[in-house]
């Protein structure tokens, strides 16, 4: 019961916030709505018993990406224009709706394989086990991700530094 209420409320907020991001003309407000969206997604993760991920979501998305976006907005201020719609909004709307329809159709008509168990334990250690163990783990991917982040940092610095 509680879960259902939580889900519907959170879902409504997510969709509303996302729509606001896309439809708002004031770009700063759009950014704030984006942050709200991120927070609510963290709430969805909690409903799904993914506690570590909820925390990671808040840290990474809200804490880092959200701030980054706001910085970028500040640095590329176009107050007159803000965030107008482009030339392609009608075709984009059409494509989006079609895509949505297709996805819903697929989801509804597929026979999903659902397992009866519900996870109850905290997931942090399990994630850690999975991530860092050698044979069944993702250690290699982890290292590569680290390298990726390094590359991204260096790239960003190179792109942005003053001549």
């Amino acid at each position: 019961m509680a879960i259902q209420v939580a889900f519907w409320v959170l879902a409504a907020v997510i969709v509303g916030a996302a729509l606001a991001v896309v439809l708002q003309r004031n770009i700063f407000r759009a950014a704030l709505f984006l942050v709200l969206c991120f927070f609510t997604v963290a709430g969805i993760y909690v409903v799904l018993s993914a506690d570590f991920l909820a925390g990671a979501q808040v840290l990474i998305y809200v804490g880092a990406i959200g701030v980054l976006i706001i910085f970028a907005i500040m640095l590329t201020r176009e107050t007159q224009r803000g965030s107008p719609s482009g030339r392609l909004r009608l075709p984009a709307l059409l494509v989006g709706l079609l895509f949505l329809a297709t996805m819903v159709f697929v989801i509804v008509s597929t026979d999903w394989h659902v397992v009866a168990e519900i996870p109850t334990e905290p997931t942090t250690s399990a994630i850690a086990q999975a991530l860092f163990s050698g044979e069944e783990g993702f250690v290699l991917a982890f290292e590569i991700a680290a390298a990726l982040l390094l590359a991204a940092i260096i790239g960003a610095i190179v792109l942005v530094r003053e001549k």
Binding site: A18, V22, A31, I69, G82, P84, S85, G86, L93, L100
Partner: peptide, 23 residues
């Protein structure tokens, strides 16, 4: 799916590059 479609619309229809990134 709904969220993805909203993001898709925003990526294709908005003019401000930062908004595209947000989408």
């Amino acid at each position: 799916a709904i969220l993805f479609s909203i993001g898709l619309y925003g990526a294709l229809a908005k003019r401000n590059a930062v908004v595209i990134l947000m989408s």
